[in-house]
Design a protein around this nucleic acid. Structure first.
Length: 575
RNA sequence: GAUUCCGUAGCUCAGCAGGUAGAGCACAUCCCUUUUAAGGAUGGGGUCCUGGGUUCGAAUCCCAGCGGGAUCACCA
């Protein structure tokens, strides 16, 4: 592997070795006591300069300014950065200045993790700093960190390549503090919601991710296989049915922050695995749930920003309750200019044609209406807006509307033209439910590959009796995108799905071919580096020149392999 | 899936009427020595994404592939 190292990486490995020779373990086992964080110091020291006269803290070296007998280092811990002032004669009390001159100045690098003790003071330039009294290496970094610099909010040499940032998120997190913030805020959002639910006495639960029937939503699932049972299992697309079974079981309120998996396209707002919060509360209906959602989102916004209005892209969006409410029929009337109330499939197709919306024969009335809505309405729904009363075909798990059996008591919340929440008065009539499932089966036969499967156990549960109940699901990733003003789902997931990284495979003969003519295995990579991709190329070379050049290469790359002799090389030529 | 742009040093990027690769930061050696995106000097560092083609000659032109971004389509 050594031959793949850049010069800087090779130098760091050399430093590591030298540290070992000096008796310094670059990866010590023992704990290092930390008694303060950089942010605490910045927060409290300005008010009281007597504080922090014996600090012990640890972090990563981010920049170094070395000037002979004294140096400045920016140390970064999980809370921020602080400047260290390191004076040679303070960390090396006696005659032996090795720790400063050799270890600190030469063998340590940007990216290394160190622990220090010292006291806090303010430099002549007015910067809160730590005067270091002792320094210990806690972990040597062998890779070169991108060095991002900043002055007056201007960033220099930002680590910005999206591919590198997503694939090596750890590097992104180290050098881009605003990225770390997004994920801290994501966690705050979830905590805030969890506290809200718990304060109401609802129970956080866990339900299966591996499911024999992928129910609860219309989506293509991932399929896997269980060996012992010798049966297919599906990664869940939703947890709705399981949570409702728990309501049947007698809980008043249950919720789950769940990873769902959908085998569909990926783009700025879709990742194959994503996080959804689903909550079900007994004896409530969808009107109650709308108020619940308003309260929840207002709390989340306030908790994060201390205000309800926040910037999303180039718009300001206000999560102050109450939100706008619009029935789907009215929304379509308003934005598409057609009245879908009571229209047949045939009539709806005519509307679609008039509006320039493509349809295909597998689409039932539900999908046709959804197509009109998606095409003509969604983009207009910028401020938080509840769209209510969806057609029955689109909502097989939702209770019929109390005043119109063609509609359901369903709402979705739209923000910035995107769906954020989906909620129902839950269907608890087992006979109606079975009929609706059968409708889905018909759609499936018609060619809709997203139509729902029939879950007979769920129907059985409903037959025992489920209380009236309202349920709601909200995409946590999208919510985080809104709340942190991120345009892409990849920016709110630590590790967004990516194609596997492909190593450049060296063209030419395989290693074995070189070994077969007598080349020591350790030398094969060096030969490739030198430019020999095939044995034939190697054999055509001048042995004397090769001896010289390979010797030079060995020295240059500091290869830890035995030097070659001329007769060895000649033997390759003759082999 | 379609269109389009991109892929050059550890990072950010320049180079493209085709002629044996450049800058800043980072790195090494030195000077200065309480600095602040420190400064100065010198130096090292590159399968120019991969594979084909055109050409005397390709980082540069053409084709294909791989990876990524954006827009659109599809999709909860």
């Amino acid at each position: 592997m050594l031959q793949d190292l850049s010069e800087q990486e090779a130098i760091r490995r050399e430093s590591l070795k030298e540290l070992g020779n000096l008796g310094i373990n670059a990866y010590p086992a023992e704990a290092f006591e930390v008694n303060v964080s950089t942010s605490e110091i910045h927060r409290n020291f300005p008010d009281n300069h007597n504080l922090y006269q014996e600090v012990s803290l640890a972090g990563r070296i981010m920049t170094r300014r070395i000037m002979g007998a004294a140096s400045f280092v920016d140390l970064q811990d999980s809370s921020g950065r602080i400047q260290l002032y390191i004076k040679r004669d303070d960390i090396c009390a006696g005659e032996d200045k090795t720790l400063y001159n050799t270890v600190f100045k030469r063998l340590l690098d940007i990216g290394d993790i160190i622990g220090i003790t010292g006291f806090v003071f303010i430099t002549q330039m007015g910067e809160i700093s730590i005067h270091v009294k002792s320094l210990k290496l806690l972990s040597k970094s062998l890779r070169v960190l991108p060095v991002v610099k900043e002055k007056d909010d201007q960033v220099f040499d930002a680590f910005s390549d999206p591919e590198a940032r997503y694939r090596q998120r750890y590097v992104d997190l180290i050098v881009n503090p605003e990225v770390r913030d997004i994920f801290i805020r994501r966690s705050q959002i979830i905590n805030n919601m969890r506290e809200f639910f718990n304060s109401k006495g609802y129970l956080e639960v866990e339900t299966p991710i591996l499911q024999p029937i992928p129910g609860g939503a219309a989506a293509r699932p991932f399929i896997t296989h269980h060996n012992a049972l010798d049966m297919p299992l599906y990664l869940r697309i939703a947890n709705e049915l399981y949570l409702k079974k728990l309501i049947v079981g007698g809980f008043d309120g249950v919720y789950e922050f769940a990873k769902d998996f959908r085998n569909e396209g990926m783009d700025r707002t879709h990742n194959p695995e994503f996080t959804v919060l689903e909550i079900y509360v007994a004896y409530k209906d969808y009107f109650w749930m709308m108020e619940f959602v308003e309260e929840m989102l207002e709390r989340v916004a306030l908790g994060l920003h201390k205000r309800t209005a926040l910037q999303v892209g180039d718009r300001e969006i206000d999560f102050k309750k109450p939100f706008l409410r619009l029935t789907m029929t009215d929304a379509i009337k308003l934005y598409a200019g057609v009245d879908i109330a009571g229209k047949s499939e045939k009539e709806l197709r005519v509307f679609c044609k008039q509006l320039g919306i493509e349809t295909d024969p597998s689409m039932g009335t539900g999908k046709l209406i959804d197509a009109i809505f998606g095409e003509k309405c969604e983009e207009h729904l910028i401020q938080p807006t509840f769209i209510m009363d969806y057609p029955i075909e689109m909502s097989p798990l939702c209770k019929r509307h109390r005043s119109n059996p063609e509609l359901t008591e369903r709402f979705e919340l739209f923000v910035n033209g995107k769906e954020l929440c989906n909620a129902y008065s839950e269907l608890n009539d087992p006979i109606d439910q079975l009929g609706r499932f059968q409708e889905q089966l018909n759609l499936s036969k018609k060619g809709d590959d997203e139509a729902m499967f029939i879950d007979m156990d769920f129907v059985r549960a409903l037959e025992y009796g489920m209380p009236t109940c309202s349920g709601m699901g909200i995409g946590i990733d999208r919510l985080t995108m809104f709340m942190t003003n991120q345009p892409s789902i990849q920016d709110v997931l630590f590790f967004p799905q990516m194609r596997p990284e492909k190593k450049a495979t060296p063209a030419g003969d395989p290693d074995e071919a070189f070994v077969a003519i007598g080349v020591p295995e350790a030398w094969v990579p060096a030969l490739r580096k030198y430019g020999f991709k095939t044995v034939a190329e190697l054999k055509a070379a001048n042995p004397n020149k090769l001896l010289n050049d390979l010797g030079g290469l060995r020295k240059k790359l500091k290869l830890e392999i035995p030097a070659l002799k001329l007769d060895e090389i000649q033997a390759w030529m003759e082999a």
